[in-house]
Amino acid sequence: NCLTLCRGLHIHHTFESGGLFPSMLERHPELAATITTLEAEHAKIAGLLEALQTLVSTPSTTSVLAAVDELITELTQHLDYEEEQLIPLLD
């Protein structure tokens, strides 16, 4: 489940960075700073996902749990910010 989630998140963020963000930026140039922040968060989350995928192959549950908690913190913050900034413009 953990690896499936990592792959799913990676694909989702790749779609946003490659399709959604450029198209929104074209229609709403004022979003430039927001998109830059979201892209930086995508890069940070990609690093966390990579670290988690490496940890899953090691036997220590404690370190995996810490990595999952860190991912939850970062991702929750990222999703909240993205919804707050983009959804009013998509609706």
């Binding site: 953990c2 989630l5 989702h12 999952v68 908690d69 939850i72 919804e83 983009l86 609706d91």
Partner: peptide
Amino acid sequence: GSFGAALRLIHGAFRRELALVRREVASS
């Protein structure tokens, strides 16, 4: 309209899945 709702749905699914993964890791 529907695109915003779709994004929220996708995000909701990731939030739920991640909480599930956390429970699985914590109980393993």
